[in-house]
Amino acid sequence: MAKDFYGELQLGILGGGQLGRMLIQEAINYNVNVHVLDPDKNAPCRKLCNKFECGSLSDFETVYNFGKDLDLITIEIEKVNVDALEKLEEEGVVVYPQSRIIRLIQDKGLQKQFFKQNDIPTSAFQLISTKDNLKNPALSLPYIQKLRKDGYDGKGVKKIVTEADIQDAFEEPSLIEEWVDFEKEIAVIVARNDRGDVSTFPMVEMEFNPQANLVEFLIAPSLYGVEIQQRAEAIAKKIADDLQIVGLLAVEMFLTKNGDILVNELAPRPHNSGHQTIEGNYVSQFAQHLRAIFNLPLGDTRCRTNAVMINLLGENGYEGLAKYDGVEEVLAMEGVYLHLYGKKYTKPFRKMGHVCIINDDRDKAISNARKVQEILKVKA
């Protein structure tokens, strides 16, 4: 950036959740002044930033007024007012990722069309405007229905297995996509700075909670063959270059049982599939995002060791003031690192923190992680 930011740059983050919290923890090392906007007065970022503002992320005036005196704005959530960001860009405020990319990724239908137009491998799909379009769909059952907008963390997704399921389908504009018989869900995080430098983190393998459809268990690095890993990383780099994004981009993919790689969704920000990089890699995803948006040289993404990340979710059946059971027991184990998100209240499947388990022995890292899953619980 033109401005010497060490101690001077005014950085705004739209969203004050755990991603913003971990981004601030890294930004402190750069002496930048961090401003945060979030609708929750008790947001996890509220006590870590230089200035916290409670307000709507979707309101034009709120977002515009928040950003007009800042040098650079980034996001930790895509559901923000893009019209305000476009106006801020016109007035000289730098927005990374760029507003046009946020607009694209806010709409899963536009995402799928982007994949098709740029020869990015993805599952077959059809855009629909109402549930009535499912009476004669282009795809045969079973398929997945996704709301075009506002879906996140497994919300806004329905499995349509039989014709009887159609009566409970979403009424709003959505897309249906082919049911992929995948072997594993994988992800690659890629970073790109304004110079055009591009760097990927090693591919990771993910397991999802079947009830909440949230990442529950992540293993890095992947043990799949070099050819598969290189293909996945090449796809992520191509998407970053096609978008000309500045910042971090998480590319979630399916590895099918016949060896194909299909892109599922994108997230233009730090992502759940990169939390293990804090302890497991030479540079974390949060440091890499800052390097990218500050147009600095990108960091060394190699893995230091084997890392397993567990999402710490609120236990089913508990809601209220959060209580953490088993903290001392898991912290007595070798290579266990706890990250709590500063959320006062828990509810079923709410992301309350994560745990990273590292070990030079991959099997030991996995077995220790399974023990942590059994012991550490968030209740009320």
Score class of each variant (00 low, 15 high):
Gly335Arg: 12
Gly196Ser: 05
Val63Trp: 04
Val161Ala: 12
Pro270Phe: 15
Leu340Cys: 04
Lys108Gly: 01
Asp153Gly: 03
Phe294Leu: 15
Ile13Val: 12
Gln167Leu: 01
Ala240Leu: 01
Ile357Asp: 03
Asp300Ser: 05
Gly20Leu: 00
Gly55Trp: 09
Leu298Asp: 02
His339Thr: 01
Ile310Trp: 02
Thr305Arg: 13
Glu91His: 09
Lys135Cys: 03
Gly16Ile: 02
Tyr282Ile: 03
Pro268Ser: 12
Thr62Gln: 15
Ile13His: 10
Lys347Asn: 04
Glu177Gly: 06
Met206Ala: 04
Val215Asp: 01
Asp300Pro: 05
Leu266Lys: 06
Val378Ala: 15
Arg21Ser: 04
Ala322Ser: 10
Phe294Gly: 07
Asp194Thr: 12
Glu252Gly: 09
Ser222Trp: 12
Lys364Val: 15
Lys257Leu: 08
Leu296Arg: 07
Leu11Trp: 05
Tyr152Thr: 07
Gln373His: 07
Asp119Asn: 15
His289Trp: 05
Asp150Gln: 09
Leu139Val: 02
Ala164Gln: 13
Lys347Arg: 15
Ser129Ile: 11
Asp132Glu: 15
Lys51Ile: 01
Thr301Ser: 03
Gly20Val: 01
Asn209Cys: 07
Glu329Pro: 01
Glu78Cys: 10
Asp168Ser: 12
His354Asp: 07
Pro297Ala: 01
Met253Lys: 09
Pro297Glu: 05
Asn42Ser: 02
Lys377Val: 14
Lys347His: 10
Leu331Lys: 13
Val330Gly: 11
Gln167Tyr: 02
Asp361Lys: 08
Asp150Thr: 11
Gln98Leu: 05
Ser123Lys: 10
Ala322Val: 11
Asp69Asn: 15
Leu48Trp: 08
Ile75Cys: 11
Pro202Ala: 14
Gly17Trp: 00
Glu279Trp: 15
Glu227Pro: 00
Lys257Tyr: 01
Thr200Asn: 06
Lys79Val: 08
Gln113Asn: 11
Asn42Gly: 09
Asp181Cys: 01
Gly151Tyr: 12
Asp132Trp: 14
Ser58Cys: 14
Ser222Ala: 15
Ile101Pro: 09
Ala236Met: 08
Leu134Pro: 02
Gly154Glu: 06
Glu216Arg: 06
Leu104Asp: 05
Gln25Phe: 04
Glu8Ser: 10
Val327Met: 11
Asn316Asp: 07
Met203Trp: 05
Ser273Ile: 07
Gly353Arg: 14
Glu374Ser: 14
Gly317Gln: 11
Val157Gly: 00
Val82Cys: 02
Glu319Asp: 09
Glu205Phe: 01
Val336Asp: 08
Val161Asn: 15
Arg370Tyr: 15
Cys356Tyr: 00
Ala369Gly: 11
Thr346Gly: 09
Gln167Thr: 06
Ala169Phe: 01
Glu89Val: 14
Glu90Leu: 08
Asp165Arg: 02
Gly299Phe: 12
Glu91Asp: 10
Ile239Ser: 00
Phe217Met: 02
Leu266Asn: 08
Thr305Glu: 04
Val94Phe: 03
Pro39Ala: 14
Leu88Trp: 01
Pro39His: 06
Gln167Ser: 12
Arg231Phe: 09
